[in-house]
Design a protein around this nucleic acid. Structure first.
Lengths: 165, 165
DNA sequence: TATCAGATGATAATAATTATCACCTGATAC
DNA sequence: GTATCAGGTGATAATTATTATCATCTGATA
């Protein structure tokens, strides 16, 4: 059922453990979930839901796009994937042009500026960005703000969230 | 017309220069643009378009939400503001759980992983995150990928963009 | 194999953003 | 100061990504 054409040993290991991890969490191991995690592990370019959908549909023609969205969010929730775009749901703007960084509350999506120095040096040592020409950089610290720390840890926010505006 | 109740000297300076910067760029200095940049400079929390709209509407009741969206994008384009959420338009997922960082092409939105070490140390020295409890962090390097470097620098992508999926 | 909580597919609803277009107005030349 | 007009705006429709809803299906367990 499951393809063995995973690109890297990391991906193979992750897929091998996946069923067990679902069971531990009380999640059913469905063909859809297997196909989606496999497509994600096979990708190197941070796909969006629709591209995973296109990929998976080749072998599961009946899969629904809604399932792909749902499953990707589930994978993030159980720690099997991460969303690169923590704040993708609406554009957030900043009038401060001075270089600075951001702490983001992963629950309520509050953002705060932070001044952290020393990054330029670290980045210079980094070397190859594979042809990408850097224009700027900023660190995103995922965090819980004070208010959200006090809430029950398990109480996930509703999918339609009360969020920072 | 323009309020002088800007919070910081930085904001006051920026607003004072704003009209001149528009002229240099051949953009009209409209009351709407002034009100929007003022609201943005007065904010400390990276608002979205709708909150700027609410703010500005108190003194310009006839302003349209579309104008706020348009103007915020214009401000980013001319370098008077920046979008904190470079990739907000659709969620992007990553199956790689190992700590790593991202280079993002600001034009075509391609994302690539980068390994950069030494950040933990810098972050530890950073000290106060104002009560935020860090869970993780990743550096976002804004860049131009090789393909996009070759395109004409002025040729902005269409608003409905051909983008990485 | 029967049971059933949870998963899925189909589709409607929502929310953010962008497109369209008639009308308006800041900037410039006179 | 007024005429001109390119570009800006407001109103609204359209688009796009995502989430909600709900009837049906199915993986896990007894």
């Amino acid at each position: 059922m499951v393809s063995e054409r995973l690109r890297t040993s990391y991906a193979r290991e992750r897929l091998a453990e996946f069923a067990e991890r679902c069971r531990v969490r009380g999640l059913a191991v469905t063909p859809q979930r297997l196909a989606i995690i496999e497509a994600l592990l096979n990708s190197t370019d941070h796909p969006r839901a629709e591209r995973i959908f296109d990929e998976v549909r080749q072998r599961h023609p009946h899969i629904s796009l809604a399932t792909v969205h749902r499953t990707l969010e589930t994978l993030c929730r159980i720690g099997e994937a991460r969303k690169v775009t923590a704040l993708h749901d609406s554009a957030r703007y900043d009038g401060n042009l001075k270089p600075h960084h951001h702490v983001i509350c992963v629950r309520c999506r509050r953002i705060r500026d932070v001044e952290i120095s020393g990054f330029g040096r670290v980045l210079q040592q980094a070397g190859g960005l594979e042809g990408f020409e850097p224009l700027g950089w900023s660190l995103e610290v995922q965090a819980l703000c004070q208010a959200c720390q006090k809430k029950a840890p398990g109480a996930r926010p509703r999918v339609t969230r009360r969020r920072a505006t």
